[in-house]
């Protein structure tokens, strides 16, 4: 564990908690893409199946359980409890256009052709594009609530910090995983447009459609 990975995990956890609290406290999921949340729940489910097969550390296990729990709780709040506030008219990104190519790619480019490894690879590729429905929704509505921009900022920073973690691990441990690194770079690049607006606009972020 290094400072970049810890900061990244905490930023990721903060994003997940911010979103869950925002929906719970305001009793509304307006401006939130349910489709992105479904993709994140799918990412965690396919990546953390090793909860059943291997124990890394208490930290690792606890965080995985928290991530999966919060992801499904968020999907539940959006599609069940606060369904009436779900912005279905603007949340129209076709996620099958993400899942199918990512699924195909995970079969073609992976480290090992075993079920767990392919599912892990699928989750890595899917996570890199999972935020697209959310960014698409904001570009359609033309604005995002301040709390939503904080959520997106923390979510974007988490993978950027992981990039530094991989540099650190390559330098000190000789460890590197090209699949995770390339997907992480793509994922971080997708946030750049948002980061620019978040930093320059401060308040209401309006992503030009």
């Amino acid at each position: 564990m290094n400072i970049f990975r810890l900061a990244g995990d905490l930023s990721h956890l903060a994003a997940i908690i911010i979103l869950l609290l925002k929906i719970w406290k305001t009793r509304s999921c307006a401006g939130i893409s349910g489709k992105s949340q479904i993709l994140f729940a799918l990412v965690f489910t396919t990546r953390y199946l090793d909860l059943l097969t291997s124990f890394i550390s208490l930290y690792n296990t606890c965080m995985k359980i928290i991530y999966i729990g919060c992801a499904y709780a968020t999907v539940h709040l959006i599609y069940m409890k606060f369904k009436a506030t779900y912005d279905g008219n603007h949340d129209t990104f076709r996620i099958e256009f993400l899942i199918v190519p990512v699924g195909g790619l995970s079969f073609l480019v992976n480290h090992d052709f075993s079920p767990l490894e392919i599912l892990w690879t699928f989750s890595i590729y899917l996570e890199s594009v999972a935020i697209l429905p959310q960014l698409f929704l904001i570009s359609k509505t033309g604005e995002a609530e301040t709390i939503t921009t904080h959520y997106l900022f923390c979510l974007g920073v988490y993978r950027a910090l992981y990039l530094f973690n991989w540099i650190w691990r390559f330098y000190f441990e000789g460890f590197f995983d090209m699949i995770a690194i390339v997907a992480g770079v793509v994922q971080t690049i997708l946030y750049c447009d948002f980061f620019y607006l978040y930093v320059t606009k401060g308040e209401k972020v309006a992503i030009p459609s």
């Binding site: 965080m63 460890f175 995770a180």
Partner: peptide, 10 residues
């Protein structure tokens, strides 16, 4: 296989 990822990251 070099650089096997221990999957110790979240």
């Amino acid at each position: 296989q070099d650089h096997i990822n221990p999957k110790d990251e979240l």
